Amino acid sequence: MSKIIPGRITHRHDGELVVFHIGMQINRWWRPDLWLPVFTAMPRMLRELSRDADSGFLGYELLLGRGGPYVVQYWSSIDKLYAYAAAPAQEHRPAWTRFNQMARKAPGAVGIWHETFLVDRAESVYVSTRPMGLPKATRAVEVGRRHDRARDRFADGRTRAGSALSETAAR
């Protein structure tokens, strides 16, 4: 289990930042034969992306929503996100094809959704948490005096808020 980072942490990231939310909605819980294949596809994709340093994938958070699981993903480029989604030799494209085939046979059993955000500026703060979110996906930095308030961190754009944490503290 990850160690708690004491104090106030924010993130630092220079360059393009994409936040991608993707999830599934299980509409027929009593039909695991329909939703389980969709459910098990995402961990394979996340493992594949996490192993490929050139993919543009920065990290993710797995969450549970009202209708089922969803993932918040962080990417370094919208082009890299779209390239992964379209690549026939990687996990996403075949999984998407299988989902569409299943959805035609059992309409409404499982829903899929996503939202893509190209982020111009972002502000974050994490107080005494395990590594998560933007600091985990990008670079964790201590909140300095000059950036004590959310408004100040947001005004700074890419959040050049303080000194970098040591690698061991951020993990």
Rank of each mutant, 00 (worst) to 15 (best):
P135M: 06
L49R: 01
Y82R: 11
F20I: 02
H11L: 04
L17F: 08
M45V: 11
F117D: 09
G133Q: 04
M102R: 15
V127K: 13
Y60H: 15
F39Y: 12
S2A: 15
A106E: 10
Y70D: 01
A169D: 15
H92Q: 04
I78G: 05
R12V: 04
G108Y: 05
I5G: 00
R51S: 10
G65I: 06
Q101H: 10
S50G: 14
P88C: 03
N27S: 07
G108H: 09
L63D: 07
G56D: 01
K3I: 12
Q90I: 01
P131K: 11
S77L: 05
G7I: 11
M1C: 13
R158T: 15
R8P: 05
R47E: 11
G15V: 02
S77W: 03
L62M: 03
A95P: 04
G7W: 10
R66T: 10
P94N: 07
R104P: 03
D33M: 05
D156F: 05
L118A: 13
R146A: 12
D14P: 04
S128Q: 05
E167L: 14
A87C: 13
F20D: 00
E61L: 03
D152W: 04
R146M: 08
W75K: 00
M1L: 11
I9G: 02
W30P: 02
D79V: 07
E167D: 15
V71M: 07
L46P: 03
H92Y: 11
Y60N: 13
A164M: 12
R104I: 05
A164R: 14
G59F: 01
L17P: 03
P88M: 00
G67V: 09
A41W: 08
R93Y: 04
A169V: 09
I78D: 08
R130N: 13
Q101E: 15
G56F: 00
V141C: 05
R153K: 03
A83W: 02
E16G: 07
L58Y: 01
A122K: 08
L49F: 00
F117S: 12
M1V: 15
W96I: 05
S76A: 13
F154K: 02
R139L: 14
L46G: 01
R149T: 13
D152V: 09
T40R: 15
F154L: 09
H114F: 10
M132D: 14
T129G: 06
A85G: 07
T159I: 12
S124T: 13
T40N: 11
T40M: 15
P43S: 11
S77Y: 03
L134H: 06
A95M: 08
I26N: 02
T168F: 12
W96V: 08
R44Q: 11
W30M: 11
R145F: 09
R171V: 10
K80D: 09
L63P: 02
V19G: 07
M1Q: 11
M24H: 13
Y126A: 10
G68A: 06
E61V: 07
G111S: 01
F117L: 14
Q101Y: 09
A164C: 10
